[in-house]
């Protein structure tokens, strides 16, 4: 993943936005898959359309919920999982929610792995943070991001899904695999902790 300075904040993506025609990955798609089959072609076309619409959104989601350097790998892994499980998908409209759920799970697994690695530190491990990103953010934004990073994983996920992607509580619950009540609890506790941390910063 490459991160460049961008002064314009990115708005939450529109889920129903159609894929653009020119310049998108699907417009320069390579040839047919080696194993052939009409069903494979349909599956590949459907996953490619989803890639066009949601890949950037998923990379950003991965960064916001805690992945740093390997956010793009996590998003790519989510699309691989979707491609392999496409025949078992009950409704193609559920694919974006499935992708978000896979990204959140993979980021959580990565953070757990990093916690284990940090308990047994080895010399030469790269820093997970992005210095460039820190420089680009304004001071007040950095305070909020630092406070967000200090929250537990579930609370951070709930806040990002709720307030960045503007998902409903039911959609957040489906993405995180928890109940709506648990989403309300995580969101309320996360906001309270965030407000407290921001007050302490002032």
């Amino acid at each position: 993943m490459t991160q460049h300075p961008a002064p314009v904040p990115a708005a939450p993506p529109d889920v129903g936005t159609p894929a653009p025609d020119a310049g998108t990955p699907s417009a320069r798609r390579p040839g047919l898959p080696g194993w052939g089959g009409l069903r494979d072609l349909e599956r590949e076309a459907a996953v490619t359309a989803l890639f066009d619409r949601h890949h950037t959104e998923l990379v950003r989601l991965a960064v916001l919920v805690g992945a740093q350097g390997d956010a793009e790998d996590i998003a790519s892994e989510a699309f691989c999982e979707l491609y392999l499980r496409w025949p078992r998908l009950r409704d193609p409209a559920a694919a974006p929610a499935y992708l978000r759920s896979v990204v959140c799970n993979l980021v959580r697994m990565r953070l757990r792995h990093l916690q284990v690695v940090r308990r047994h530190p080895e010399p030469g491990l790269p820093d997970a943070g992005s210095a460039e990103q820190e420089v680009v953010l304004r001071e007040d934004h950095r305070e909020v991001v630092d406070a967000l990073r200090g929250l537990p994983d579930r609370q951070r996920e709930a806040l990002v899904l709720r307030y960045w992607l503007d998902l409903s509580e039911a959609e957040v619950a489906a993405t995180m695999g928890i109940s709506c009540g648990a989403v309300k609890s995580h969101t309320a506790r996360g906001m309270a902790a965030l407000t407290k941390a921001l007050k302490e910063c002032r």
Binding site: A10, H55, V63, S76, E132, L137, V145
Partner: peptide, 25 residues
């Protein structure tokens, strides 16, 4: 409001590599 603004700003710093689709495919 501050959280939304900060999340949007942080998301705006993220760019994807141009060959991401080819590698994923």
């Amino acid at each position: 409001a501050r959280l939304r603004e900060a999340l949007g700003a942080m998301a705006g710093t993220v760019r994807t590599s141009p060959d991401a689709y080819e590698r994923a495919l």
